[in-house]
Design a protein around this nucleic acid. Sequence first.
RNA 1: GCGAGCGUAGCCAAGCGGUUAAGGCAGUGGAUUGUGAUUCCACCAUUCGCGGGUUCGAUCCCCGUCGUUCGCCCCA
Length: 430
Amino acid sequence: MSSIQALRGTRDILPSESPLWETIERLARHVLNQFAYREIRTPLFEQTELFARGIGEATDAVGKEMYSFEDRGGRSIALRPEITAGLVRAFIQNKLFAQGGVQRLWHLGPAFRYERPQAGRQRQFHQLDVEILGSRDPRADVEVIAIATQLLNTLGLKALTLELNSVGSSEDRQSYREALVRYLTPFAHELDTDSQDRLIRNPLRILDSKDKRTQEIVTEAPSLLDFLSHDSQKHFEGVQQHLTNLGISFNINPRLVRGLDYYTHTAFEIQSADLGAQATVCAGGRYDGLVAQLGGPDTPAIGFGMGIERLIILLEQMKRFSTVPELDIYFISRGEKAELQSAILANQLRQQGYSVEVDLSGSAFGKQFKRADRSGAVVGLIVGDAEAEAGKVQLKWLGSGDQAELSQADLMAQAKDLKAKIAQRRADLA
RNA sequence: GCGAGCGUAGCCAAGCGGUUAAGGCAGUGGAUUGUGAUUCCACCAUUCGCGGGUUCGAUCCCCGUCGUUCGCCCCA
């Protein structure tokens, strides 16, 4: 145990898991392309102040969970606890607003929070972040939701629910907050201790308390939806209308409250029952004030973050994706001359577009065949002393065991043919 | 930050106070200098996360510590 371990809450993504990550990344890229979103890559760390100002000093993500430190120049730096703030900073700094119209952006990468790890939660975790800046139109809200649902559908995930709410403008929320506190204060001593604390710090969060008694009290509480201004209400109705038009079903949840300060109007979460305590795979909302708050021009925006690790948990439960690499050819050779020849042939075949693995062990043919079998290759090419002398090679179909000898020159001459046959063989198996 | 469970090989594990620390998978070598999911044999933990304590004796009991898992808080 004296060897160095990965830090708590961090994890290695091993070769057995990385194909799943690649699948998610590939499909995400594809769907985002369909929606005309463009990738942006921003730094993993930023000035601490960006997060303090953008996300909110009082939020847990910033107040107690941020990895912040002083660099060698005495600047206060933080690893990003989420992606939106940095993306908005880049939007402002690079004056992307000057290109007019709306900007559709996405980014996939790690974020960091100093929390106790548990199911679906790590200190370094990955998020797909999708944002559309410059539109107040409810269709923009629905567009990002449509991206999320299409991506999840493409991955084959079922049994997810879209929870939808509007938290209104900051004025709406302010008046609601007062009404809520007015209602709850007489019950203060009956609330669970966490909620008593929240009554002062962040009353809206009491709405989704897990405590039974608190839940009972909250059922009778005034509803946020009754405090929406006319405009807020109209926007919310627009969102619902467009969702319905697109055939995306949703569940209005007046208790859905987002954790970060910058949200306004639309708030949504996509949840799964199969994730344990962290049910949310994807969460987002509108943040019309954030860009201005960070020093940019007044720009409405909406987006979401999707937790890749949580997605992976769901996909692994389905066991739908293969983790076996696609290997065409496995080279078996023994003897100095044979090993030399097979190295050359392997390289030529790679240049022809094959994926080729060469057995380097020099061990008995029996062992090499065993490894060839397990490698998942379709074809085994064997060069021993006899073949090396005669300039030949044994071509073996590892599935059926059929084997034929041909000259190395013929092998290369028929390389195109072979490729079609390998594809055919693989299709037959699938 | 708080609560609970668990740490025996690369993986899955049995043992729960007496000293040879089961078994399975994987791996390596061999039976078989050249043909693979069959079979057989051998090898693979001076040691049970780490430190301390109790005991004649501790993988097993106690304390601490680290890690891990699940939950709370919070969140993707």
